[in-house]
Design a protein around this nucleic acid. Structure first.
Lengths: 237, 237
DNA sequence: ATACCAATATAAGTATACATATCGGCCCTC
DNA sequence: GAGGGCCGATATGTATACTTATATTGGTAT
């Protein structure tokens, strides 16, 4: 066995293979999960592609056991599909399933916005305002990667403002599941301008403490993104 | 190794230990997951209690490997908590978390009902009517376990009628997570009569193709159950 | 030539052996 | 006598060996 994680905290392992961060109370399986989920979200692992236990084990210089456990963990987040006795594949989401997922996501994010509208404080108003301004700035410079990150921040801030950590968790997970597909859409022609406008409407409704308007504004925003995404995918097939 | 699942399909294993159903394309880990999840939902495994790998492995006459994998699978469903290097425990849900979960569940089940109202067919109307009649009958004879099962059937029928299999899945999972707590509430004084009345309102709204009414009726139904549950728990602490 | 069966190969599932971290008890010191 | 540190026991994490199912390929028969 490789001399992994035995000594001090915050180590890194390099076995002549790929590096793997190993934090204090962290197991190899958990590290692998993070690494692989990141690769999936970033699109480095194509949806539908097979995950070979042995190959991945070799690549990171570990045995099959933690790899298998990481697969189980990821299956929990619906990021990989386990077909008994037939291996694991990166979950490939069909257009129909994406429609369904956006329908649910619109509702959950809408609920976040509604709760946020009921509960926001003054301080939060300043925070979201700052985020939005940075989003506008990124939109003007056209730096798409930064725009994508700040967009994420905006939604995250609303999750937190809902003060329902379970809801925040569920919504985040769902957002994560479609991340691999979403990231391809951010680059569409009018998406940046539309996003800025839609965010404005959401923000105003929340700050005006209008739950119903916040709900529908957010729902529309998510649904529009979903529609864009489906248009985008349709152009490919 | 015990001679498990090696030969024909649909077997049962008995090693002088507890029996474990092993279906055709099913792994031991999956079987264990089902068995243990059932035990949790039925309340045979107390929330917060520790799950000992070795003990469970011995009890079912298997090695620790499939037991560990079953734990990971269950962690995916939020039914057990894995604290690295410190074992697995049956997830214990605090009152605050239950409130949050019911808030989300009300919204999801409400969405199911809304979609169902838009999409139901004639045949489905007959089916849900039959289920409801059986629920009423079970309520009159006072057989609570049967009532509980038919109640589940009713909700399940609406999940399916939403024609959104992702939504159905999410809702089912959430329902499963709170099952261990819900089951204690079914036995409350007026719950049976209330449930029947509330189901009637939901059913009528759906059959009348009134999405908004179906949504709010279902949301109220779930919220009332949540309130009852919290009252029940409060009486204990 | 195609379809079906059989045999073999490959990869998933399971068992077991080994490494290592956490927890509890006991002893020593202050 | 109490508190802290050290040591050992126990259970989790990981590696490896072995079993078994599924898929693929080749051959044969129709």
């Amino acid at each position: 066995m490789a001399d992994i994680g035995a000594h001090s905290a915050g180590k890194r392992v390099k076995n002549g293979h790929e590096t793997l961060a190993v934090s204090p109370g962290m197991t190899l399986a958990e590290s692998l999960r993070q690494k692989l989920e990141g690769a999936i979200a970033a699109g480095h692992l194509e949806p539908g592609s097979r995950l070979d236990e042995q190959e991945i084990a070799q690549r990171f210089g570990v045995s099959r056991t933690p790899v298998r456990e990481a697969f189980r963990l990821m299956a929990a987040n619906n990021l990989v599909e386990l077909r008994g006795r037939q291996g694991a594949t990166v979950r490939s989401i069909k257009a129909q399933a994406l429609i369904e997922m956006f329908q649910v996501m619109a509702e959950l994010e809408g609920l976040c916005a509604r709760l946020a509208a009921r509960r926001v404080s003054q301080a939060w108003g300043a925070e979201i305002g700052d985020i939005h301004q940075r989003l506008v700035a990124a939109g003007e410079t056209g730096d798409i990667d930064v725009f994508y990150d700040i967009n994420q921040e905006f939604h995250e801030a609303i999750y937190e403002a809902s003060r329902n950590s379970f809801l925040a968790d569920q919504t985040r997970k769902l957002r994560n599941q479609v991340a691999a597909y979403r990231s391809r859409v951010t680059r569409m022609p009018n998406r940046i301008a539309d996003t800025v406008r839609e965010h404005e409407a959401i923000m105003q409704a929340i700050l005006a403490h209008d739950p119903e308007r916040a709900h529908s504004a957010m729902r529309d925003h998510v649904n529009l993104l979903g529609d864009n995404l489906l248009d985008f995918l349709a152009a490919f097939e």
